[in-house]
Amino acid sequence: MAKMVNPDISGKQYQEGSLKDWKNYEYYVLARDEYTCQLCHKHGEGVKLVVHHIVYRSQGGTDRVDNLITLCTNCHTTKNHQPGGKLYKWMKAKKKVTKQLKGATFMNILRKRIMTTFPEASFQYGSQTYVDRKNLLLPKGHFMDAIAISGIK
């Protein structure tokens, strides 16, 4: 995947990959889990989501995306983290996440074709759009993302 995004990638940059920064991990996990709590299956507006470590970091869990899962704040509770709680049981069972973003491969192929057809075009990753939108104090939304991407100050 990294080579498809950047054919010139090598060394440490290749090893760290596109998921090196936490926000990228978070976006990936939320998208992979279709912005749905993987415990109670709630989704949509009004549902606050967080990214949870299946094997807790205090127990040696990593930030690898196969150890991260989407939960709503109603399920991501102290009680569920304690012995007997659902998240604690997941940790002990070392629950595995097997779903992957197969669509990402398609999008990378599509991006290459667009960039070849329209060489004057540029692209921007969602993680940068998020930062730009926040810096402009804009609310979340497709139109607001378009404004942020435009480079307006």
Rank of each mutant, 00 (worst) to 15 (best):
T116N: 11
R57T: 08
T36N: 03
V131H: 01
A148M: 07
K23Y: 00
E120S: 11
G141C: 10
L71N: 07
A148Q: 07
V55Y: 02
G103T: 08
H142D: 12
Q100K: 13
T116E: 14
L87W: 02
S58N: 08
L39S: 10
Q124H: 00
K3M: 07
G151Q: 01
V97W: 00
T73Q: 08
I109W: 06
I149G: 01
Y130Q: 08
K134W: 00
F123E: 11
Y125K: 12
D63H: 11
I69C: 10
I54N: 02
G151E: 05
P139K: 06
A146T: 09
G85P: 11
V97D: 06
V47C: 04
D21F: 09
D66R: 00
L30C: 06
K94A: 09
K3E: 12
K89A: 15
Y130A: 14
A104D: 13
G11M: 04
K86G: 03
K96I: 06
E45P: 14
H43M: 07
K89M: 15
G11D: 05
Y125S: 06
E26M: 02
L101C: 14
D145N: 14
K94R: 15
C40F: 03
D33T: 09
Y56V: 03
S18W: 02
M107E: 12
I147E: 09
Q124P: 01
V5Y: 11
K96T: 13
P119G: 06
V29Q: 02
H76G: 06
Y88C: 10
S18I: 08
K153G: 14
Y27W: 02
M115E: 15
Q13P: 05
K3N: 09
K20G: 04
R133M: 12
T129Q: 07
I109A: 14
W90L: 13
G11K: 00
C40P: 04
F118D: 09
N108E: 15
I152M: 03
K140H: 02
C75V: 07
G85R: 04
L138D: 07
Y125M: 14
T105P: 01
C40I: 04
V29A: 10
M1N: 12
Y130D: 15
T77W: 00
H81T: 12
I54G: 07
V50Y: 00
H41T: 05
V65A: 02
D8V: 03
N80T: 09
G60E: 05
F123N: 11
V131G: 07
E45T: 13
Q59G: 04
M115N: 07
Y25L: 15
Y14K: 08
K92L: 12
M144K: 00
G84D: 12
E26K: 14
Y88L: 03
R111V: 11
K92Q: 14
T73V: 15
